[in-house]
Write a protein that binds this DNA or RNA. Structure first.
Lengths: 242, 242
DNA sequence: CTCACTTTGTGCATAGGTTCACAAACGTCT
DNA sequence: AGACGTTTGTGAACCTATGCACAAAGTGAG
């Protein structure tokens, strides 16, 4: 059954994660009036190897022309289609604190296929407020709102303590794609897709690499002064002796 | 030189990316007064396999006791140390729009090792405003501010158009770790570490998987009604015929 | 002390991802 | 028309990551 050619050919996760970058670069090229691009040029703009780009694109089909390159418009459309951006995705944001406000007014939301249909927050202070043309409602309105215009993607921007409850309710009304900004691991049925974005995790990964650079003094050339001001005190000289 | 045992043993990137999750779960356990935890319990809380957890932890050293498990405090400290959280990381945020405000007041920042030392924005309307106890300054103050209290990590929360310029200036004053929220690929010297967090990319990845689920009707059991309200209209029936 | 039981740490097999290198396919120029 | 230079698409090799399964190392009871 998985060999059935009628089922869309499988695209590796690593490739899917890069497609949005390709699409963004292509959109910029299109704005600049560029009609055609080679894998070498596009990969340089995105910061990957050209072979990787070609292999990634080969998973979508053969949309390049040998000896020439890729037509910008065509490729952008095909990536959009593969990602599912040619259809409309109704999005709801739960939790309208600082982050929720930032997300709701983020322009990246509206650009491609995503449409904010509902904003939820139980804080009475936010009652009646409108962000980006959408009114903030109490979360208990989820069911009625959902019936009117089904939510495809739920964004959780609440404190960690509320995240699981909110998630359960979203799943209950049929939302199967969730983007979670709360620092909590959500448990969901296996047919629900959760992606987590965590600021603190990213910072910690940066800190790790910064420490590695500081421990082994492996700055290439002429970068010694940069290290100076960056990490002044060596961390735990006993580490070597265990 | 890389075989020198004095240099901290190499930890795979995939492992580093999971360490913050382990640390978060351990912190919660510590708050609950739990003293000891097995790889089975901890891995369940984080959502990975127990073998994966054990292998990840083995990269840090042998901090478990066979037949017993891991002491929560000890393990939390060792992970913190491996990640570099036992030292202090001065952070600056550039761009104090909605997102910048959200980041500055995000509690995850202060919890572990990270300390906001400067907020920058050139918008005159923000002049004099204070967020989380730190005053917003014009970006040109970067150099003087940096001299006083060196910045280790720079967070870019500006529009995409300004990101590269801001990045160049940060690198110029010696910042070698950058967290970029702008939808732009930054070019930096190779000794500078950039991590990008992009909302729109995450949404697009979710959209892809949602579309996949809709195309192949592969909901496991009894989940048919959930699909109902989620994605109503089939996408592009011609795709099969190509 | 010995035995039974638990849980870690790790060697090994498998799966997934990246890079190389080159044949196949296209446009162009003569 | 044919030769030439360019660029794609992909097989194969390499590298990284995951999952299994078990020996090693500990605890506790008898």
């Amino acid at each position: 059954m998985s060999a059935d050619p009628a089922v869309r050919r499988e695209i590796p996760d690593a490739t899917v994660a890069r497609l949005p970058e390709y699409l963004r670069s292509l959109s910029r090229l299109a704005e600049q009036g560029v009609l055609s691009v080679s894998s070498e040029e596009l990969s340089a703009a995105v910061g990957v190897r050209s072979a990787q780009l070609r292999k990634d694109l080969s998973h979508l089909g053969s949309y390049g022309v040998r000896g020439v390159g890729y037509e910008v418009d065509t490729l952008a459309f095909e990536i959009s289609r593969a990602l599912g951006l040619t259809q409309d995705w109704p999005v709801a944001i739960v939790g309208m604190g600082n982050l929720g406000h930032a997300l709701a007014s983020y322009s990246g939301f509206v650009t491609k296929g995503f449409r904010i249909v509902a904003l939820f927050d139980d804080d009475p202070a936010l009652r009646g407020e409108t962000v980006a043309g959408v009114a903030i409602q109490p979360f208990r309105e989820l069911r009625s709102r959902h019936g009117a215009d089904p939510i495809a993607i739920g964004v959780i921007a609440t404190p960690a303590a509320a995240a699981q409850t909110v998630c359960d309710e979203l799943v209950e009304v049929g939302v199967r794609s969730i983007l979670n900004f709360a620092p909590a691991v959500l448990s969901v049925p296996e047919d629900v897709d959760v992606r987590r974005v965590d600021l603190s995790t990213e910072l910690q990964i940066l800190a790790f690499h910064a420490q590695q650079k500081a421990l082994a003094g492996l700055q290439p050339v002429g970068a010694a002064h940069a290290l100076d001001g960056c990490v002044a005190h060596a961390a735990d000289p006993e580490a070597v002796a265990t």
